[in-house]
């Protein structure tokens, strides 16, 4: 039986991930803080704030959905007071009708990547005020490269200019990725 907060999280994030940004005012505090590996890599502060942060997250998730069949499954959840901790399996599966990852189209057709995420959600006055998510981005790149470290390194080096550009855009208050990259 899911708790009230758990159902609230499902509802809010389903809407955010589908690109419905009207959810922000309804479900998130204005000073919402997002700290995920991507914000750590792409900002000096390590996190983003407010509606801009929510939009950034929405774009990333929509980008994955455009490129892969994606499922998000909460496998464990612990709740105490205003904090909910979730262990999430984030699965990306190749789909012949989708273009695949932007930086490498040579993935095996049956490739499936499972990322184990740990996420902490903090609530204030019934709204989400903070999200801290961590996962091993490097291991994910290694999985994408089918365990071939040299291939993973080559992709990381290829990503470098894109990351630099993303960081510069975020510093100027611009979102680096379109919601549906082609």
């Amino acid at each position: 039986m899911k708790s009230e907060k758990s159902r609230f999280l499902d509802k809010c994030y389903d809407r955010l991930y589908s690109g419905d940004l009207t959810v922000f005012e309804e479900c998130f505090t204005p000073d919402y803080t997002l700290c995920i590996p991507e914000t750590q890599l792409m900002t000096n502060a390590g996190y983003l704030k407010g509606e801009f942060a929510a939009e950034f997250l929405s774009h990333i998730i929509q980008g994955d959905a455009k490129n892969f069949d994606r499922t998000i499954e909460t496998v464990r959840e612990v709740e105490q007071g205003d904090t909910v901790v979730r262990e999430i399996l984030y699965t990306m599966k190749m789909n012949p009708n989708k273009p695949g990852d932007m930086l490498d189209a040579n993935y095996p057709p049956d490739m499936k990547i499972v990322i184990r995420l740990m996420t902490l959600y903090q609530f204030r006055d019934g709204k989400i005020c903070e999200e801290f998510t961590t996962y091993n981005l490097l291991a994910t790149e290694l999985d994408f490269a089918q365990g071939d470290l040299k291939k993973a390194v080559a992709k990381i080096l290829k990503m470098e200019p894109m990351m630099k550009e993303a960081k510069a855009k975020l510093a100027k208050g611009e979102l680096p990725f379109p919601p549906n990259p082609s």
Binding site: T134, L137, L138
Partner: peptide, 30 residues
Amino acid sequence: MFWAYDTMSFLVDIAGGDMKAAGKALGKMG
């Protein structure tokens, strides 16, 4: 016991924010 942290950010931080240097270092670690 399960633990998670982002090794990529860690490596890039050690490299002073230089992702290219971090990528090359990763190659050496192989």
